[in-house]
Design a protein around this nucleic acid. Structure first.
Lengths: 220, 220
DNA sequence: CGCCCATCAGTGACATTGTCACCCAAAACG
DNA sequence: CGTTTTGGGTGACAATGTCACTGATGGGCG
């Protein structure tokens, strides 16, 4: 069940068989159901997470209760924010929620230290993971500080839809993705609808004209 | 001149003498004048930076020409964004500007790899640096997405003033700090002035009532 | 089935922030 | 000096955020 670890983790920096074997020998496997909190301000893990299967949504919430999605951790990636929080013992208010049922590999800190020091490939993998998240956050800052809401919403709709045509989501959900208020999403969506780009019903959005949406998402 | 390296770099994780010696033996020292670009989209270094003296301002700019300050690198800290960019070969538009004359220690990548693998203390230092920046960026996201401009401006004025009473800066500069437009800063500053919190003259802001400013900065 | 209730979405009024097109004043510089 | 550059003020409007509502929908249950 864990045999294809190497393939899974090739996304950023492939881990050779030897490293894989070592990792598995010291790691623990955990399963969490969709909706579970993987980590959060009140739930700081003392171990490192490597996501084997599923998807984690990492978001940050304000005191006033608004929320914004920072990035998603996909299968084969590592969740470095937990590491960051362990090391820099500062307050933060990001949390990771399992979007699907997940399977993760948990590496106790001592084992992590050993692997990092002894395995070049593992080290590269970890640094790449950190770097990726830094870049992700730069993107979020850019979007929030300089982006326009209709553009960001169009982007997000296309991303959430993937190959499908319909998205099962609420306006409030989309607002939480983008860090804005529901009313703002409602306004823009009703505008999109008037222009024939989407169709809406309760808890469901259908992308009618993906081409036009993509034109909007590409900054225009 | 470089003897007190250890003390300098104790902020995050002290580097013992042995590590210091190794580092110095493989590193190069560079000097840059205030205002020089340390790194940027068109200027991706292939080495790691450790700031020995001075201060670097890391900011991101939008296509439209607006700008926001992400964080500052102080003496004794490392500038991991360059590392991140080297590893994750993605487009980004952050740049680092020397705010003062700076002295930096430049470590070629192979030497960096060797040190990371062989020196526990150095590894801790690097991970702590990454973590610190991730946390910094979380804070920026929080501010931009959920913060109010008057609060953010009051914070920044106090931070920029430090112990002093006056800040030599322009409205445009403050706008670039916070990622907004000059007009917005002008409006809020003239409001602060009406309320007797500050006094202004061309290129200069005096904090008249720091206590009241701090009340505003503390989210009220 | 038909009613109840929680959730989801729509609306109008208003505050804050961003954008644009200007103007004016102060310093910089010959 | 006068001219140029730079910093700052202003009014109108657009976009976004906030508030206090109302109406609509669908699931659960008697």
């Amino acid at each position: 069940m864990i045999e294809d670890w190497t393939e899974r983790f090739q996304g950023t920096a492939a881990l050779p068989r030897a490293v894989r074997d070592r990792l598995i020998s010291v790691a623990r496997i955990i399963h969490l159901g969709a909706g579970a909190q993987v980590f959060g301000p009140t739930n700081v893990p003392d171990s490192l997470f490597f996501l084997y299967d599923g998807r984690i949504r990492v978001s940050q919430s304000s005191e006033a209760g608004r929320e914004i999605v920072l990035y998603r951790v996909d299968a084969g990636e590592s969740c470095v924010l937990t590491t960051a929080c362990m090391l820099a013992e500062e307050a933060y208010n990001a949390e990771g929620i399992a979007e699907t049922n997940i399977t993760a590999i948990v590496l106790p800190k001592p084992a992590f230290d050993r692997l990092v020091s002894e395995e070049e490939a593992f080290r590269k993998f970890v640094f790449a993971a950190y770097s990726r998240r830094l870049i992700d956050l730069l993107r979020v800052v850019d979007d929030v500080a300089f982006g326009h809401m209709d553009v960001r919403l169009a982007e997000r709709l296309l991303a959430l839809a993937g190959d499908h045509k319909e998205i099962p989501t609420t306006h409030q959900n989309l607002a939480s993705e983008l860090g804005t208020a529901r009313e703002v999403i409602s306004r823009i969506l009703s505008d999109f609808q008037k222009r024939g780009l989407i169709a809406q019903s309760r808890g469901r959005i259908a992308l009618v004209d993906k081409v036009a949406l993509r034109r909007i998402a590409e900054a225009g």
